[in-house]
């Protein structure tokens, strides 16, 4: 894959093997996650496909008439959502999961967070490839505006990294955060434009759109991918701003509380 190649090129540079290490951590994590099951990595895309199918069947009665290509509408929203959900849930537990390395070897401890974000990206790349193939098969090939798409993924990764760092810090003092976070995720699923048309709710409550770090990523990535529309640049600005603030808070709290996290394991 492209990232593997990038890692290989990077190692030609002297001294640091940092990128390579982060990639290796991510890759092995991805393998471990599915290695115990009989179907293995097939689950990585069977699971989201089945989810999408269920949502499609359930919601298409309500929304299919007002949203064109409703199946793809859900698909494109849900893969962004699943990335965020998976990355933050794993990020919450990454210190515990990587205790066996963090305690024993000298390296930059942030690497385990970077790799956790990358692990989820591998699954995401599988999903987005399936989606693009389906779009082409169904005669809706993406336009040149697809080049904007990585921008939203970058935004999503910055956001997920920041949230993971903050959650794992809170986890040091409050173990209940993993249950609480499940609830927050549940709430977020229903207020983000994953399966409903964005106009409906956002016309009533614009704050849900502009004060929400995730909604814009979903809307813009969908617009460029499926509808070939120009992204809403104001929303892009908002979202990058939120993600950077959250990442800054995350890095600060991680540096301040990491020692406590290891001691209290």
């Amino acid at each position: 894959m492209a990232l593997g190649l990038a890692a290989r090129i990077y190692t030609i540079l002297p001294e640091s093997n940092r990128i390579e290490r982060i990639w290796l951590l991510a890759k092995t994590d991805f393998k471990v996650r599915y290695s115990a099951s009989a179907l293995g990595t097939i689950w990585a895309f069977v699971y989201p496909l089945i989810r999408i199918l269920i949502y499609y069947i359930v919601f298409s009665y309500v929304f299919a008439k007002e949203i064109p290509n409703y199946g793809f509408y859900i698909f494109s929203g849900i893969i962004i959502w699943m990335y965020f959900m998976e990355a933050t849930k794993n990020g919450l537990k990454v210190i515990k999961a990587k205790q066996y390395l963090l305690e024993n070897i000298r390296f930059n401890k942030l690497d385990v967070f970077y790799s956790s974000i990358l692990t989820s990206l591998i699954g995401f790349i599988v999903n987005i490839s399936v989606l693009i193939c389906l779009l082409i098969i169904m005669g809706l090939p993406p336009t040149w505006r697809l080049i904007y798409y990585p921008l939203f993924i970058l935004n999503l990764m910055i956001l997920s990294l920041g949230v993971s760092l903050i959650l794992s810090t809170i986890h040091v003092y409050l173990k209940d955060i993993s249950q609480l976070w499940e609830l927050v995720l549940l709430l977020m699923f229903w207020i983000n434009p994953i399966f409903f048309a964005k106009q409906k709710i956002f016309n009533m409550f614009p704050a849900l759109l502009y004060a929400n770090p995730l909604a814009g990523i979903i809307i813009n990535s969908r617009d460029v991918l499926i509808y070939g529309k120009e992204p809403d640049w104001l929303l892009v600005g908002y979202n990058f701003f939120y993600a950077s603030i959250i990442l800054a808070v995350g890095l600060w709290s991680f540096n301040k509380f990491f020692h406590k996290a290891i001691e209290k394991l």
């Binding site: 190692t11 290796l24 951590l25 092995t28 070897i105 690497d111």
Partner: peptide
């Protein structure tokens, strides 16, 4: 008892630990 991931093979653990210690894949 510490230092390795039980879900990974000896080969994978060697590469992971070695890489974290600062060795390159080559």
């Amino acid at each position: 008892g510490l230092g390795f991931n039980g879900q990974l093979t000896a080969r994978e653990n060697i590469y992971l630990n070695g890489s974290i210690m600062g060795l390159t894949i080559s």
